[in-house]
Design a protein around this nucleic acid. Structure first.
Length: 556
RNA sequence: GUCCCAGUAGCUCAGCAGGAUAGAGCAACAGCCUUCUAAGCUGUGGGUCGGGAGUUCGAAUCUCUCCUGGGACGCCA
């Protein structure tokens, strides 16, 4: 908890105390006291609507209640300068902002750690994301999921949650057989043979490259081998190749995982039967039409789901239930799955499984990432999975750069469709929010560099009382809010909140920069104070950018 | 047909555990570089928050209903 949060908590506690003292409500009746930051500066630093909320309980007019609260509030203790009652019964607090001057030394001292809190209390959670089939290149939807998932993990981590990142590898189903026959076809084609791509094959360019690689390394060695042996080889070779490529692309995209979990391992380690047995023992299953069904309708799904098909094999759901049981067995208290919009229909049955296994429905959270539409020259770029012409993560990284992608993909709320404007993302102009934000950081670096050259030292040895302009105070307040912004973004699972914060802070920095001169030989003391402020802004900007995986350049 | 998401300024979007005069960027218009990077700043105009009803002191926010756009509804994965 930093000084700003301490002040807020203290104020809330004092308000609560005042209400009880004034006998407006008992502690049990009292709703949570919410302090909000008014949009209008004229409405103070904080405002609360508690007087209106208490109107019914206390059976008094809101404004009268507000009077009673104020009368019982020790202003000095709560660091309040001035209180006013406004509108229908808002209580506006104008704070004694001297605490803000303590902020800069804290930020300069904490550096990379500034913003981190223990709000999450080490709550053990796991975020599973991307989890794309190892049968082709990552496309835009995966890229957005990767950016959002990674940023969310960073934010949760900074807010004091104990978070693990996991990638589920679907290496057991039909799609891997299709991968094998696709690799086979590309291998044969690379050797100049007539060998049509099967209907269900993967048409991605990566498989063509893979076929060529095989042809170069093995010549026609595999052409005349028995089909079973050949396909087994292509299967394992293809899987390794694809996984290596996925990991490399993601790493380049600044996304790494703590754990890559193989679906096949569930079979090898016999995890599926025990999971199935839990459902059977609890009588959530039944037999019908020579298949085994899971009664997901008991948990609100609109129809029951098959677990074991009439040919004896499992549906996709069955190992997935075993997988989620495994996650829970590993002791995670909350599971977050980040899925593409096309999987949202899958949520009720997975949540049913969680409950059937004996856990609360909200143990599993599913964040749905809506579609990405790519725009170039003002026109929507058409994508086709069949022809393999979808734009890949790698191509986009090469074309628009990682910083722009990371920023754009988390810029919007995840449940809104995203129009990705390639021209904007590529443009090195003020239209591009990534440049705007990075420029703010680079600008500060330039000032700090020149300050050092001119012999100014940047450290905690400065007089904070020399910082008092409106823009300086705005910056300080915003810096102080950073830890709480992280907590909010973590609790609400809204990483896009972080891009907003970065943008707003950058905007205030640019505004300050144009209004005030930092390096001023005629006012060395004020210069030192402003340099310290600039350093604090720089650290906060860099920390915020780091949370969303965007670099903070020192010059541009 | 059922379910999910969205509908807010000309465009792209914030705001949605109800709160004061609904915000930002872009676009439009008017200004600011002999001064730390103008990749920047300052100002102006712009809205029936998809329509309608309800809940209450108060609704963009909650409920119902209708309209529009997108997605999902396999013994595929």
């Amino acid at each position: 908890m930093n000084s700003v949060q301490q002040i807020q908590e203290a104020l809330k506690a004092d308000i609560k105390q005042a209400i009880i003292q004034a006998e407006l409500a008992t502690e049990a009746e009292l709703p949570a006291i919410v302090l909000e930051k008014p949009k209008e500066k004229a409405h103070g630093d904080y405002a609360t609507n508690i007087a209106m909320q208490l109107a019914r309980i206390a059976k008094k007019a809101p404004r009268q209640i507000a009077e009673d609260i104020i009368a019982n509030l020790d202003q000095a203790k709560a660091s309040v300068n001035e209180i006013e009652i406004a509108g229908p019964g808002f209580i506006n607090f104008f704070m004694d902002n001297s605490y803000l001057t303590d902020l800069i030394p804290v930020i300069l001292k904490e550096q990379d750690a500034y913003g981190k809190t223990n709000a999450g209390n080490g709550h053990k959670m796991q975020v599973e994301f991307v989890s794309a089939n190892p049968t082709g290149d990552l496309h835009l939807g995966h890229a957005r999921g990767a950016a959002v998932g990674d940023s969310l993990c960073n934010i949760l981590d900074a807010a004091g949650y104990n978070v693990e990142r996991e990638y589920y590898i679907n290496d057991a189903g039909n799609q891997i057989n299709n991968l094998a026959i696709s690799v086979e076809a590309r291998y044969m084609q690379a050797l100049g043979r007539e060998w049509p791509m099967p209907e269900d094959g993967y048409h991605g360019k990566d498989i063509i490259t893979l076929g060529e690689e095989l042809a170069a390394n093995y010549k026609d060695e595999w052409v005349n081998k028995p089909e079973e042996e050949r396909l087994a080889f292509f299967r394992s070779y293809g899987l390794k190749y694809e996984l290596k490529k996925l990991a490399a692309d993601l790493e380049q995209f600044r996304v790494t995982f703590d754990h890559w979990f193989s679906e096949t391992s569930l079979y090898e380690e016999g995890k599926i039967e025990p999971a199935l047995n839990v459902l059977k023992e609890k009588d959530y299953t039944y037999e019908k039409d020579a298949a085994t069904w899971f009664r997901t309708t008991d948990f609100g799904d609109d129809k029951d789901r098959v677990l074991i098909k009439n040919d004896g094999s499992y549906t996709y759901l069955t190992p997935d239930i075993a997988y989620h049981k495994n996650k829970l067995d590993r002791g995670f208290e909350t599971l977050i799955n980040i899925w593409g919009a096309d999987h949202h229909g899958y949520i009720p049955r997975m949540r049913a499984a969680i409950q059937a296994l004996g856990y609360k429905a909200n143990t599993l959270e599913v964040e749905i990432i809506q579609m990405v539409n790519l725009f170039e020259n003002g026109e929507k770029v058409k994508m086709s999975k069949r022809t393999g012409k979808a734009v890949t993560l790698r191509e986009l990284m090469e074309e628009v750069g990682i910083d722009a992608m990371r920023y754009f993909f988390v810029m919007r709320s995840s449940d809104a469709h995203l129009d990705f404007d390639m021209d904007l993302a590529k443009s090195e102009s003020n239209d591009n929010p990534v440049y705007y934000v990075q420029y703010a950081h680079a600008r500060i670096c330039t000032m700090l560099r020149q300050a050092t050259e001119k012999g100014f030292s940047i450290n905690e040895d400065f007089d904070a009382n020399l910082l008092g302009t409106e823009k300086e105070e705005d910056l300080l307040k915003q810096l102080g809010a950073f830890p709480q912004v992280i907590v909010d973004a973590a609790q609400n699972r809204t990483p896009h909140r972080m891009t907003q914060y970065v943008f707003d802070l950058s905007s205030n920095l640019h505004s300050f920069y144009n209004a005030e001169k930092v390096l001023d030989a005629e006012h060395p003391e004020r210069t030192k104070a402003r340099l310290a402020l600039m350093q604090a802004v720089r650290i906060t900007l860099a920390n915020a950018l780091d949370l969303i995986g965007v670099s903070a350049p020192e010059s541009m």
